[in-house]
Amino acid sequence: MKGIQVRNVTKTFGKVTALEQVSVIFEPGKIYGLLGRNGAGKSTLLNIITNRIFPDCGEVTLDEEAIQERDALLGKIYLMSEKTFYPESMRVREAFHWTKMFYPDFDQAYAERLAAQFALDTGKRVKALSTGFLSIFKLVIALSVNTPYVFLDEPVLGLDANNRDLFYKILIEKYSETPFTMIISTHLIDEVANVIEDVVIIKNGRVICAEPRETLLERAYTVSGPAAVVDTFTAGRDVLGVETLGGFRLAYLMGTAPDTLPKGLEKAPVDLQKLFIQLTNV
């Protein structure tokens, strides 16, 4: 099959198990949201797929070929991560030039245009960039490399609201013209909820959900009303959590809501961020 396949990957750092028996598939041409709380294992997974660190066991394949055995495959994947691998004294424009040597499909003219749109000064040295502009610098490269797989680890770190807006717009424009696989790992779930097609949620090193956003949201609902009525309804059902305000209670549930509810109860869909919080609370 085409795409990136992660099979039974386990990774430990000393006594800490960062990933445990993780299996997940990333298909060509889709936008994924990789969601998880701090320390859940998102970055570890992205680093393993791009061969920056090695798993204790398990394997990663791209179009059925093992990534660990063929470095050439890595030319198809670009990972934008927290770390900057450019020499710090290098200027932004030089970094563009340098990227072109490693990624032949990198579109330098397009990168220059994006830099202008974000008001990123390409004459500046990378080390002189602020947090926001360092993110923009990395984003501009990620959006210009033209590899079939682009991973964005916390892409909007330090970006102001206007630049985040611009980033999502450019990302969708680019994707609409030529679909490629994007994995966006972010904590700003509300912002990407409608951009992503599939959701992968990692909790404590395990994948607890990997499916289209829409089917996940269809599997969850809330029920609210007088506390006693809510409790009677939720008994024996798959309850993720409850919120209580005086005598009023709201319960988050997995499953399909019955067409008719007991009198006094109201059902409603859940949005992705709220569902994520419920699924990943301890």
Binding site: K169, S176, E197
Partner: peptide
Amino acid sequence: SITEFATTYKINPAT
């Protein structure tokens, strides 16, 4: 177009 809708509302083109 689909692209115009997707970029204007910042939603996945598939949506």
